[in-house]
Design a binder for these strands. Structure first.
Lengths: 356, 356
DNA sequence: CCTATTTTTGTGTACGTACACAAAAATACA
DNA sequence: TGTATTTTTGTGTACGTACACAAAAATAGG
């Protein structure tokens, strides 16, 4: 077992002092070419891994990180992502961190535009973005690129930008998986109800669209001729949903399976239950509190999880380790698509134990 | 934000020196009743969380941990558990650890008995056990209890013993889940082939038996009348398996689904493929390399994962934090039952990112 | 009451890194 | 060449904990 190499060891091997090694490691400048080369030569040879816990302990300066995401509601998807942020912050509680959370209304493009305009001018060391509107996000990122401030996406990537990294599920594959699951539950050639709300004002290839594409591509590749029927639904304006659903299910009273591609599956599941419409198999998205309840009660058959806590945790962790320890970063990070049933939901850890 | 409380702070509040606080925290003795009470009173009030990274840094003594599990083969279940052990060891690489791995032949009770006899007498600070044979494990644990050496199980618990903790899947629920999945794939009232090898010499309620029970209980609760057929198979003596399988499938050529409750699902999947028997849905266990391949090729429909890397990681981590930092331990730890398909297997992280 | 012994308590150092500051070397300029 | 200035380098301290060791207090024994 090779002994751990320390800064002091590198200094000795390079014939310089520890201070010089430190300056080279952190690009602090004020190092002669000769000394730099000597240190770099040693670094080439040895496998130096700084003890990040000690680094954190010795760190003096304060880092400021800004987070912007859609508004957070209890028990919902974005709350889980924020849990991840907080958990990472605790894991690095010996660092001196200032974290500012700024949320926008994901159903109001003007709210987002105004918030992003402010953020673009703020003092900060790094930015974490939960994007919704493509153009607004793009504009913000352009500004960040200009100012040389690193940013990381959670939930989705945003085309044309240059993030340090993103943590997201593969939305297309998510749709494919949902198709696979619903078709395994229902007879061949039958109808499938599909509910996906496209957000007004969002011109981008957003996650729901990608999911739908993955879904339809899978269906069309099957030998069986499924009939996919769109169920009207609006997350923004819930008042009409009851009537949308009742109209749909009175026409298609024989529909054997429904897929919901946003996190409101519980709404449909509970509608069906309270209207005594049984035997409709359901595949839904996200472990929101009401969805999990519906799953446990057997009103939803499969629920897909996108590791939101993990996304938040990793985004924050990656950013901190980049900023402070200069750790190399993997840019593309697709998270697991967890398949949950009432049988295995109880063991799903989310957060209690997983990290650190 | 409340400032972090340190040993020094506790000392000041209790009117003693840092050394005394240290002695109380670590039960090192040589503390007057008065001083102890003063310190304990302060500890009641404040939320002291030692900085375990610094603790590790300051630690002088070496800890020895013994691991015993079945023999490890490349790409198989137990190798993943050992990956977890190693990963945890790396995560705590600033600790002074001596780890001794002693494996036994899980198909030879005498090999196990002899190995455990030796282990019972060895010098060590802690033991991690991957149990197979109930009585042999029980005897070893009795000895450990006597010697006051803590032990943790991975993969299964062992009745009647007193482990510090165990990390295992809920095997009964695993069987239930497999039943749920296979019945969702095949027509009602059809036949199901089930393959589960009971190990010779293992009288205990072992994991396979529990899985079978969970499976059968689920099936018998269904309205549909499935017919469950046992497929003969021997992991220990593979030479007859080919003929077992050919006999079974020639009789039951119309069987629509097969469940394999040990990790050899790929064997059946590939048999079916090479004998042009298609349209047999398969639900199998464990992400061994050959199983994952069969899943990706579409020869297996659902694969259940039991987080073996996580089991190993957590077992080691829990033991270290107990031994060294005196961290409170949760005894019962059931791991996730991950449902994998060819669609989501690619995102399954196992180890690359998860921990630390 | 004094000394010897034991118990209790406090102090100091190491661990590996960041960074401030002082010291030394190199360079500029007269 | 000598002094001033800048660049480069080395040293020392802090961070929070474990633990060795020395100092102080309490107790025992005569």
């Amino acid at each position: 077992m090779p002994k751990k190499i320390r800064i002091k060891d590198i200094a000795r091997l390079a014939g310089v002092s520890a201070g010089t090694v430190d300056r080279v490691l952190h690009n602090r400048g004020n190092v002669s070419t000769k000394a730099r080369q000597a240190v770099e030569a040693v670094l080439e040879k040895v496998d130096y891994k700084p003890n990040i816990h000690v680094s954190a302990l010795s760190l003096k300066r304060t880092y400021k990180i800004v987070i912007t995401t859609p508004v957070v509601s209890p028990g919902e998807y974005w709350e889980s992502i924020h849990h991840g942020f907080r958990y990472a912050k605790e894991a690095y509680s010996n660092l001196k961190l200032t974290i500012e959370v700024l949320t926008y209304n994901q159903y109001d493009i003007f709210s987002c535009r105004e918030m992003f305009r402010q953020i673009a001018e703020m003092e900060m060391d790094a930015l974490i973005i939960g994007p919704t509107f493509h153009n607004e996000t793009y504009t913000l990122c352009e500004k960040m690129d200009e100012r040389n401030i690193p940013y990381i996406f959670v939930d989705s990537n945003n085309d044309g930008t240059h993030p340090l990294a993103f943590f997201s599920s593969d939305h297309y594959m998510c749709g494919t998986l949902m198709a696979k699951l619903i078709t395994s539950l229902i007879p061949v050639d039958s109808k499938i109800g599909i509910l996906h709300a496209v957000r007004v004002g969002n011109q981008s290839a957003n996650s729901t669209i990608l999911r739908k594409r993955g879904f339809m591509d899978y269906i069309s590749k099957q030998e069986a001729a499924y009939q996919v029927l769109r169920i009207p639904f609006s997350v923004e304006e819930p008042k009409n949903n009851e009537s949308y659903l009742s109209r749909f299910f009175s026409v298609h009273h024989d529909i054997p399976g429904v897929v919901v591609m946003n996190s409101r599956g519980n709404y449909v599941a509970n509608y069906l239950h309270s209207n005594q419409i049984h035997d409709v198999k359901m595949v839904c998205l996200d472990l929101t509190t009401p969805n999990v309840e519906a799953l446990k009660k057997g009103r939803i058959d499969f629920l897909i999880g996108q590791e939101p806590e993990y996304q938040g945790f990793r985004a924050m962790k990656t950013m901190l380790e980049h900023l402070i320890f200069n750790k190399p970063v993997k840019r593309e990070n697709y998270v697991q698509l967890d398949i949950l049933t009432r049988e295995n939901i109880g063991f799903y850890k989310r957060f209690n134990n997983i990290m650190l």
